[in-house]
């Protein structure tokens, strides 16, 4: 026996008005970020004290550039998904909630694009 209406069963969505897409994306980006962040921190630690030229040469390496872009995309996707959860939990006024959510998501896009552009610019010029 099910207590769900036929329409509710077809939609597959409960009171959250949402499916599992958010949950899955949060987990997949989390799994990707485990090796990516460890690689990034290890690389930065090994480069402590390196000058501008050495950092440019490192970023310009194709493997490093690709990993950095993946890191940036996974980081900002994961960050905006997490911030969405926090905002939905604590901001109760519907209008304010929508405005803050839109601002956070646009900021994540803008910052992510800026970082990817910086990596591409260094990789192409170097």
């Amino acid at each position: 026996m099910t207590l769900r209406s036929p329409l509710g069963r077809v939609r597959g969505l409960g009171a959250a008005k949402d499916g599992t897409a958010h949950w899955w994306a949060q987990r997949i980006t989390a799994a990707a970020l485990v090796p990516l962040t460890i690689w990034f921190v290890a690389s930065i630690a090994a480069m402590a004290g390196a000058g501008h030229a050495a950092v440019l040469a490192w970023v310009a390496n194709p493997v490093v550039a690709i990993l950095l872009i993946l890191l940036v995309i996974a980081t900002f996707h994961h960050a905006q998904l997490g911030m969405q959860t926090v905002i939905e939990d604590y901001v109760h006024h519907e209008g304010t909630k929508v405005v803050v959510l839109v601002l956070v998501k646009l900021a994540a896009f803008a910052l992510g694009v800026a970082a990817v552009f910086a990596v591409v610019r260094i990789a192409v010029k170097g």
């Binding site: 440019l56 970023v59 950095l68 800026a114 970082a115 910086a118 990596v119 610019r121 260094i122």
Partner: peptide, 8 residues
């Protein structure tokens, strides 16, 4: 982001 943009 600041670090990467500044490096570029």
């Amino acid at each position: 982001v600041w670090w990467l943009v500044a490096a570029a």
